[in-house]
């Protein structure tokens, strides 16, 4: 993880330096503007998808709270999600096409977690050369406990997220994380992956600006 962050940091710096070399004339000044929005206490109301399991697609609702300590560091203290498993049709296809009847599938029912958030990127972008929007991109790492049909299983997650700020108090947030779930059963593979894609309405309280 540390290596990945180091590589990411070095590559972003390299990209920036490449651009700087391209952009800067001897007489020009390159400046970073002040952020017009800052986050403090963030309440998230979310809808998400667990897309990776071949047998079902998880559709979940989630509530979360995040405390922002600075422009770059935050702690998503808690998040809780309830999941509905929509069948993909693979089970039926295996039965009808290959005559194979799979054993009962273990499905995610709900999950709880907590994350650290690092926000190195602040965005300013023009929509159709007319309107200006602000946002940010962040990295996530944390832990999750999943309740499957038959057992609780812990997981470690890493992810990437982005936020578009609508007003100082309201924004949209998109998180994509991969959870490496530690399998409880000795017969199963030692780990499995649960990818989570979450779209949130984020409400920001208590920011000074």
């Amino acid at each position: 993880m540390q290596r990945a962050l180091l590589v990411l940091w070095v590559s972003v710096a390299a990209i920036s330096q490449a651009q700087v070399a391209d952009l800067e004339n001897p007489g020009s000044v390159s400046a970073i503007q002040e952020r017009p929005f800052r986050m403090k206490h963030e309440l998230d109301l979310s809808f998400g998808v667990l897309p990776i399991d071949a047998f079902y697609v998880g559709l979940y609702g989630q509530v979360g709270y995040t405390a922002h300590f600075s422009d770059t560091v935050a702690w998503q203290i808690g998040r809780a999600a309830y999941n509905y498993a929509a069948q993909t049709g693979l089970r039926k296809e295996l039965e009808t096409r290959y005559g194979v009847i799979p054993t009962a599938q273990d499905e995610v029912q709900f999950f709880l977690g907590s994350d650290l958030i690092w926000t190195p990127l602040h965005l300013k972008f023009a929509v159709l050369n007319r309107w200006v929007l602000h946002g940010e991109v962040f990295l996530i790492t944390g832990a999750t406990v999943f309740k499957f049909t038959n057992s609780f299983r812990p997981a470690v997650n890493v992810g990437l997220g982005a936020r578009v700020v609508l007003t100082p108090n309201v924004g949209f947030r998109l998180d994509v994380t991969d959870n490496v779930v530690i399998q409880a059963s000795s017969t199963a593979a030692p780990v499995m992956n649960v990818m989570a894609t979450t779209l949130s309405l984020a409400i920001n309280f208590g920011a000074a600006e």
Binding site: V12, A13, I15, S16, Q17, Q19, V20, L23, S30, I32, Q33, D71, T72, P120, L121, H122, L123, K124, F125, A126, V137
Partner: peptide, 11 residues
């Protein structure tokens, strides 16, 4: 758009 990276660089 443009991104400020750690409030130091522009991309």
């Amino acid at each position: 758009g443009k991104l400020s990276v750690a409030d130091r660089w522009d991309v």
